[in-house]
Amino acid sequence: MEKSDLIVNIIVTILAICSLLPLFWLVTNSFKPSAEIYKMPPDILPKSLYLDNYKELFSNQPALRWTFNSFLVSFVTTGLSVILSAAAAYAFAKLKFKGKNIIFAIFIASLMIPKETFIVPLFKIIVAFDWVDTYQALIVPNLATCFGVFMLKSFFETIPDSIRESAKLDGANEFTIFFKLMLPIAKPGIGALFILNFVTFWNDYMWQLLMARSKGMNTLTVGVAGLMQEISPNMGLKVAGAAIAAMPMIVIFVLFQKYFTKGITAGAVKE
């Protein structure tokens, strides 16, 4: 290993450790009573494994329902949005239809519009459908993601047209070509988009806060934020809630890491 590579590796390692320190501090503090969390100077590790924070979180708060809501909303929204994005990206990359370039330009332009600008009209639509405080309100408005279409279009463009043409000569229709040929080839990009979308929907706070009116419909993000706003000296309970909310994202990233690292770069270079 060259000296320059060694220096770069050391710097990257130090930065990685620094980025993990807040997570380490969050998890360790969740196993401390509130008095130890406020202690100065603080203890790096808890003196004993204090589990009352988690017991109180799941016994006195509907944390299990919040967790279920978060997983249901995040997985369903992510799965459907990835399928819709892949279908639209395939159409833009491989099919020929009138106005394709103009429509795709509109898609790209919409990425520059902040979500906050259309929350009010979107909220009025949800109220008109009488979907407030339902799973439909948390899932349906997030299904169409222009970023996913933009990202996957480059993956489908790298796939040779000869594959599609050969399948059509064998009698396959567009649905068969898309689901049985194109999707498996674009698996790295789909995996990367799955991670990005899952993290986005799991952390979505504003829209979930507007739509979930009852405490039982809250997701973990909204429920934990509510704990933070309560006037309570039990900081350990709040930290435990934040730790529970952070763990699934880490697990999802670890499980799909190989797809994420391949997907971010695989579609960047065209054959």
Results as ranks from 00 to 15, higher is better:
Ser4Lys: 15
Ser4Cys: 02
Ile7Pro: 00
Asn9Pro: 00
Thr13Ile: 10
Ile17Arg: 09
Leu20Asp: 08
Leu20Asn: 04
Val27Lys: 04
Asn29Cys: 13
Lys39Phe: 06
Pro41Tyr: 03
Leu49Ala: 10
Asp52Val: 06
Asn53Trp: 05
Tyr54Met: 00
Glu56Gln: 10
Glu56Leu: 09
Gln61Lys: 14
Arg65Trp: 00
Asn69Val: 08
Ser74Thr: 15
Ser74Cys: 12
Phe75Ile: 15
Thr77Val: 04
Gly79Asp: 03
Ile83Val: 15
Ile83Lys: 07
Ile83Ser: 10
Ser85Met: 05
Lys94Val: 03
Leu95Tyr: 12
Lys96Ile: 05
Gly99Asp: 13
Lys100Phe: 06
Met112Arg: 00
Ile113Glu: 02
Lys115Arg: 05
Lys115Thr: 09
Leu122Asn: 12
Phe123Leu: 15
Lys124His: 14
Lys124Asp: 12
Phe129Asp: 12
Val132Tyr: 09
Ala137Met: 08
Pro141Asp: 06
Asn142His: 06
Ile159Val: 15
Asp161Glu: 14
Asp161Gln: 13
Asp170Met: 11
Ala172Arg: 08
Phe179Cys: 11
Met182Cys: 08
Leu183Lys: 03
Pro184Met: 11
Pro188Cys: 11
Gly189Pro: 02
Phe201Pro: 00
Trp202Pro: 10
Met206Gln: 08
Gln208Arg: 08
Ala212Cys: 09
Arg213Leu: 07
Lys215Phe: 04
Gly216Ala: 12
Met217Ile: 03
Thr219Met: 10
Leu220Asp: 01
Leu220Trp: 02
Ala225Asp: 14
Gly226Trp: 08
Glu230Tyr: 11
Ser232Trp: 10
Ser232Pro: 09
Gly236Glu: 00
Leu237Asp: 03
Lys238Tyr: 09
Lys238Asn: 11
Lys238Val: 14
Ala243Met: 06
Ala245Met: 08
Ile252Val: 15
Phe253Asp: 11
Val254Gly: 07
Phe256Glu: 03
Ala268Arg: 12
Lys270Met: 07
Lys270Asn: 08
